[in-house]
C-alpha cells in the first residue's frame, strides 16, 4: 500500500484542464521527484493532495485516507513547504514557526533551535523584513522540526542561496535515512538527481514519464563541447548525436546517454585538447518529448533550470 497515491486525478477550472488523469505513487521511505515546467500543474496536484482543492474526478489518498475528506487527520502526520511562502508581515519568524509547529500538532523546541541555527535564521525579525529565501527558511524550519511521516516540498529552494540549498538537501537526506517519505516538486534536475529515488514528469497537466532515475537517465542527453587536434567531421553523421555545431576544430553537440561510449571513442581518437560536459537538464528531457511528439511549440518549455 503506497503512502501517497493519486489515481487518475483530473482537475478542471472552468474550461481549462489543469490535471488530466494524473497518477502518482509515493512509497514509505521514498523520495519522489515531481518535476515539470512552470504551469504544468505541479502546484495544483499538491494542493489536491493537501485537501485545499477538490478533484474533479479520480482519487487522491494519503496514508490510505481521502485527501479531501480527512485532510485534518492526514495533516497531523504530514508537513508541507510551498514554493512561494506567504507570511504575516506583522508577526516575527519565531512566532510563525511556533504557530506552524503547534498547528501541526508536534513541537520539539531543541530541534527547532537547532534548525534555526543550521539555516541561519533570525527569529526576532518581522516577516515583512524577510527576503523570499528567509521566508522559505521559516517554512522549512517549521517543517523539519515536526515529527511528520510525509513531507511535501513545492520548489522549496527557489529562493535559497547555494549554501542553504545544500543544507536543505542534507536535511532531506536525513529524513530519508530516518525512513520518512518525501514528495519533492522541482524544476531543478540536479537537485532531483541528488535526492530522489523515483521521478515523475508532468507537462501540460499530463504525466509524461515516471520511473526510477536510472530508467529515466537513458532518456536524457549530455551536452558536450570539445576542442580537438584534428577535425571531427564525422560527428554529425553518428547515431545518437544531435544539434551539432562545428567550427574548425571546435564543436558542441548533444549525445544520447546510450551512444556516449561510441561517440567519446571517436572524439578521443581525434586528440582532445579541451573537453567540457554538462549533465542533462530538464530542458533536454522536455526537448526529447517534444521531438518524439513531433510537437513544435518548443518555446513553451520552462527555462528556469540551472
Amino acid at each position: 500500500m503506497p503512502l501517497l497515491q493519486a489515481t487518475h486525478v483530473t482537475k478542471t477550472f472552468g474550461n481549462f484542464t489543469a490535471l488530466d488523469q494524473v497518477n502518482i505513487e509515493v512509497n514509505k521511505g521514498e523520495v519522489y521527484g515531481f518535476i515539470g515546467p512552470n504551469g504544468a500543474g505541479k502546484s495544483t496536484m499538491i494542493r489536491i493532495l493537501l485537501g485545499i482543492l477538490q478533484v474533479t474526478s479520480g482519487e487522491a489518498t494519503v496514508f490510505g485516507m481521502d485527501a479531501w475528506k480527512d485532510a485534518v487527520h492526514i495533516h497531523k502526520r504530514m508537513a508541507y513547504v510551498p514554493g512561494d511562502v506567504n507570511l504575516w508581515p506583522n508577526l516575527t519568524g519565531g512566532e510563525v514557526i511556533d504557530l506552524f509547529t503547534k498547528l501541526q500538532g508536534s513541537s520539539n523546541k531543541q530541534r527547532k533551535d537547532e534548525l534555526m541555527e543550521i539555516f541561519d535564521l533570525d527569529p526576532t525579525k518581522k516577516c515583512r523584513t524577510y527576503s523570499k529565501g528567509n521566508r522559505q527558511k521559516v517554512a522549512l524550519v517549521a517543517a523539519f522540526a515536526s515529527d511528520a511521516e510525509l513531507f511535501i516540498f513545492d520548489e522549496p529552494t527557489s529562493g535559497l542561496d547555494p549554501l542553504m540549498e545544500r543544507t536543505f538537501q542534507e536535511q532531506v537526506l536525513k529524513l530519508k535515512d530516518a525512513g520518512k517519505s518525501v514528495l519533492l516538486s522541482s524544476h531543478i534536475l540536479s537537485e532531483v538527481e541528488k535526492l530522489c529515488d523515483r521521478v515523475g514528469i508532468i507537462r501540460e497537466g499530463k504525466m509524461i514519464e515516471t520511473g526510477t532515475l536510472e530508467e529515466l537517465r537513458h532518456l536524457t542527453r549530455m551536452h558536450i563541447s570539445v576542442e580537438t587536434k584534428r577535425p571531427i567531421l564525422e560527428l554529425a553523421s553518428m547515431k545518437g548525436v544531435h544539434d551539432v555545431v562545428l567550427d574548425e576544430n571546435k564543436g558542441s553537440f548533444q549525445v544520447d546517454t546510450e551512444a556516449l561510449e561510441s561517440v567519446m571513442g571517436y572524439v578521443s581518437k581525434s586528440g582532445i585538447v579541451h573537453l567540457e560536459s554538462a549533465p542533462p537538464t530538464l530542458e533536454d528531457l522536455f526537448m526529447r518529448h517534444y521531438e518524439s511528439d513531433e510537437a513544435s511549440q518548443a518555446d513553451e518549455v520552462g527555462r528556469d533550470e540551472q
Binding site: 493537501l50 487527520h73 508541507y80 506567504n86 507570511l87 506552524f100 517554512a139
Partner: peptide, 10 residues
C-alpha cells in the same frame, strides 16, 4: 495565499 499555511496543517 496565507490560508494555505493553516490548511496544510492539522
Amino acid at each position: 495565499n496565507r490560508t494555505e499555511n493553516l490548511f496544510s496543517r492539522a
